[in-house]
Write a protein that binds this DNA or RNA. Structure first.
Length: 554
RNA sequence: GCGCCAGUAGCUCAGGUGGAUAGAGCAACGGCCUUCUAAGCCGUAGGUCAGGGGUUCGAAUCCCCUCUGGCGCGCCA
């Protein structure tokens, strides 16, 4: 919607400079904003105010000079006026909006998609919970955020790989093995207490039973250390399957799974560490080995090898990220919990130490989901009963509502999620407001088809029959969809698309209430259906970019 | 103590690179279904944008200070 006007404005400014009406040689960025009130037109420019200082003239005089040089040969504009302190307000002609609707129709489901990504390869890693238990609500936010980012980047011409890094090495996994061993032995009749700090959740009882069903009781007879290792691997595999299943209930799939254990086994961690040593960024102290991240702006050096000789998690993570670079991605995006924000500078430091460009790595921080029940905080302890599982959430409120709700906020802002509210009043959830617009249009289209107006008739309709202010406002909204998607992807902020869809749905509900679509005037009906069908399409395409469905009936 | 994020209507939150009268959804109150889905629409009410300085034609937005909340701060992942 903005681009053609930006050209006109730029031409006008340059003409004014050539004509000596402006003394500036370099124009400020010409950005057009959508004014809040309708009485300020469709788009507004503040360029006159930006130039005022250099020109040493009143903004309104500069605005007049620019407007004098405006050459709207294509007839896009209905009205141009100078208002307030020096804004130039533009109002498009109806014919411009009609053309927008034609363009929208012609683009089909590709409307809103773009090629600004130029096929650049982007990897986005998210969730990456260690497979020691089912996913909970906190993971769900990272999951839907990462997935929406992947979809938005794909829609804007990026080649995206969605990846899950399996933290299947380290102490947590050893504890999983020990805990599973206790559950397994108990299940087989040998009462065994959980180890200190073990995983107490009931899900391990089910895991133990499942292992007993497939493997029998043979691990009771093998040496306990060996048995724990074997049970750890069995449990880890089973739990990873559950995690995969859990995210699938939110319509999320990953393209790649990368195992930390395998990275270690392949020697990547060791060779990466050697390279850091060679580069001179590692030193020994207090029995451990340290990475000199302070060289790159971190506030402290970080251990990479424990005094016991094992690699730290950080060391493995460095190797993992280096491996991402080696795979040739142009952009590497990590979706992390906000409690990991301190890791960002040290990971970038490590990449820099390895001679890699730290700007390639971008980290999207996802804040905690603060659960409440009837306004009271819900404790999220280690005990399974106190967790709210992702699968329970999806079962209670549905995948679409859960996804929509979790995407409604900026990812780096904390999110309140009241379980009772979400369950009891799920019909008040804004996702229904948006989906309802889609279903309403579907209903109208069904009736139109019964009346003999098919899709071909609609496609051939003349948009010039649309003259109501609500109709032009709806087209205006549709025209903003491509730039909204673009901004949402560029800024890595899915919530912008969410808000757009709520506004579009609101525009449509208002229109629907005031204006009857079906009637006797077939040309008018066809034109209104053309508008409706494109609103419906944008709702569907927009929801699809967020991983949310669009129902035909509700 | 240091660092990161936040503080906007009763509640939950939007407010691209500083712009015009600060918006939406819930909750509250009052209206609208013999006609395409009332999961909707219209209206009323609700604000010291945490507080104080500064920058300038102009600040919720940028800078500094203070207060409050969340998170993080060498061998957990």
């Amino acid at each position: 919607m903005k681009k053609p006007l930006e050209r006109l404005l730029r031409d006008a400014c340059e003409r004014a400079i050539q004509g000596g009406e402006l003394v500036t040689t370099t124009l400020p960025p010409l950005f057009l904003s959508v004014p809040k009130g309708a009485d300020h037109g469709d788009l507004a420019s503040n360029v006159a105010m930006m130039l005022a200082r250099g020109e040493k003239k009143k903004p309104r005089d500069i605005a007049e000079a620019i407007v004098r040089n405006l050459r709207d040969e294509a007839g896009l504009l209905d009205q141009v006026e100078i208002a307030g302190p020096g804004f130039i307000n533009f109002r498009f002609a109806p014919s411009y909006w009609w053309q927008c609707l034609r363009d929208c129709e012609a683009a089909g489901d590709g409307y809103g998609r773009s090629t600004i990504g130029e096929g650049r390869r982007v990897q986005i890693e998210f969730v990456s919970a260690n497979p020691t238990g089912p996913l909970h609500v906190g993971h769900a936010r990272g999951a839907v955020t990462g997935n929406a980012l992947a979809l938005l980047l794909r829609a804007t011409g990026h080649e995206v790989t969605r990846e899950y890094y399996i933290n299947d090495a380290g102490n947590q996994m050893e504890m999983l093995g020990a805990s599973t061993y206790a559950r397994y032995a108990t299940h087989c009749g040998q009462e065994t207490p959980l180890p200190e700090g073990g995983y107490p959740g009931d899900y391990l009882i089910d895991v133990a039973a499942s292992i007993e069903a497939s493997e029998g009781r043979r691990y009771l007879d093998v040496e306990p250390g060996e048995a724990r290792a074997a049970l750890r691997d069995h449990a880890g595999a089973l739990l990873l399957d559950q995690i995969r299943h859990d995210v699938a209930t939110l319509n999320i799939q990953f393209d790649e799974f990368v195992s930390e254990k395998k990275l270690r086994a392949d020697g990547l961690v060791a060779t990466t560490l050697e390279d850091l040593v060679t580069a001179g960024f590692v030193y020994d102290a207090e029995g451990a080995r340290w990475f000199r991240s302070t060289e790159f702006g971190d506030d402290k050096d970080r251990p990479v090898v424990k005094s016991g000789g094992e690699f730290t998690y950080f060391a493995a993570d460095i190797a993992y990220h280096r491996q991402k670079y080696a795979r040739g991605f142009h952009r590497i995006i990590d979706v992390w919990g906000a409690d990991h924000h301190g890791h960002v500078p040290r990971m970038k430091a490590a990449m820099q130490a390895l001679g890699l460009d730290p700007a390639v790595l971008e980290v999207v921080l996802v804040q905690v989901v603060h659960l409440t029940r009837n306004g009271e905080p819900v404790r999220m302890g280690k005990r399974a009963g106190e967790f709210v599982m992702l699968r329970d959430l999806v079962e209670d409120v549905g995948a679409d509502a859960a996804t929509f709700f979790l995407l409604m906020r900026k990812s780096d802002a904390q999110l309140d999620f009241d379980l009772e509210l979400a369950k009891r009043q799920s019909s008040d959830n804004p996702v229904f407001y948006v989906q309802y617009a889609h279903a309403r249009i579907a209903s109208v289209l069904r009736q139109a088809a019964e009346g003999g107006i098919d899709r071909a008739a609609v496609a051939g309709a003349d948009p010039a029959r649309l003259t109501e202010p609500e109709e032009l406002a709806l087209i205006r909204r549709l025209a903003q969809f491509p730039e909204t998607v673009e901004a949402s992807a560029v800024e890595l902020e899915p919530h912008r698309t969410v808000f757009f869809l709520m506004e579009l749905a609101g525009d449509f509900h208002r229109y629907y209430t005031r204006t009857r679509i079906l009637g006797d005037d077939r040309e008018l009906v066809a034109a209104r259906l053309l508008l409706a069908v494109n609103v419906q399409k944008v709702v569907r395409v927009g929801l699809d970019m967020l991983g949310i469905g669009a129902p035909e009936t509700m």
